[in-house]
Nucleic acid binder design. Structure first.
Lengths: 185, 185
DNA sequence: TGACACTTACCTACTAGTAAGTTAGTATAT
DNA sequence: ATATACTAACTTACTAGTAGGTAAGTGTCA
């Protein structure tokens, strides 16, 4: 049963979103799966190994949504915002973005995980810049616009708003998205 | 020595910024102060009590910067951005905003702390909306602008960018601030 | 004398991680 | 066909360390 391994990764991803990396435990994970803690150690010897596997899982998810958006039939100028909406969809109720959760614990993590999180964060920017470039070529964005700076604003505000959403409710987040939509016109 | 109490609060604030609420410990705090763990329990019986005290400390700091900005001699249209810059100044190197750190642990915290964090988050929005209203009256903002939505965008993006800053460096953050400056023109 | 600010010594619960043993299934050689 | 050898996927039982929290005692100063 190799899908026990991906089952653990998936459950860990959920736990990271809800509690953060340092606050979830092998014991809790094991109880949720109905196996022993040692069984999870069999698949992922150290917590760090599981962490790296989850980072790779997130990276794949990010890449998939990128390709999906890139190849989609919608207009190029709508793709940056569509990409953001697609990414949000993957986040369950009351769950923060897993990348944000990992960033929050960043300083306590091993070097291997820090490098992975750095890669992930940079990839988020790069992917959005690429979609913005396509949108610009189709004439929807002001040519004076610094696309990297714009991507940074879009990502930062989305991630920040997801944090506030848990505390202040859906309404906060929707108002933010409306502002972003306006900004991309 | 009543300032031992505020000494503990100050150190806890620093610890929350670096590790988050669930990941700092009384033991670690005690060692940093050169006292025993039980001594901290004497001042703050439960960790929750210390957490609430820190929230109140943050709330006071937020209020102080607000009053300082409100009463400052600079032009009203520059006050929203000046307020954000002042708030960032209080954050030490590699430290995330303490409110963001508390939001990240939100779901694991007691109801008392959740309520405090909710108050704090709402206060951030309210204070910025107030400064934006003053700026609008002095003619620097488009009258069509929804000020609450703008405040939400400013706060979200600042908080989000502070997270990325730890991982991707100062440059990321500066680019974000430049975009916000542009947005407020 | 008694309140204040502690310390010492402890408890229980939980953490990551490990060692050794078990079970079921597979591949191979005779 | 069957014994042998091996592997995957576990479990049981443990370690050492750390977490929050408490009870009882100590020194000090008004």
């Amino acid at each position: 049963m190799t899908n026990r391994k991906s089952q653990i990764i998936e459950l860990t991803l959920k736990n990271i979103q809800e509690k953060g990396f340092t606050s979830f435990s092998y014991d809790h994970l094991a109880k949720e799966l109905g196996v022993t803690k040692a069984s999870i150690h069999y698949h992922f010897e150290k917590k760090e190994d599981l962490g790296v596997a989850v980072c790779e899982r997130i990276q794949k998810g990010l890449g998939d949504v990128y390709i999906l958006t890139k190849e989609s039939a919608i207009a190029a100028e709508e793709k940056p915002f569509a990409f953001i909406l697609q990414r949000i969809k993957f986040l369950e109720q009351n769950g923060v973005c897993p990348i944000s959760a990992l960033q929050a614990d960043y300083q306590e993590l091993s070097q291997a995980m820090q490098e992975k999180i750095q890669q992930l964060s940079q990839m988020e920017v790069d992917v959005l810049v690429d979609l913005l470039q396509d949108a610009k070529q189709h004439g929807s964005l002001k040519s004076t616009e610094d696309l990297e700076a714009l991507a940074i604003l879009l990502i930062s505000s989305t991630k920040g708003a997801l944090q506030y959403k848990r505390v202040l409710g859906e309404d906060f987040f929707h108002k933010m998205l409306e502002q972003l939509k306006e900004l991309l016109k």
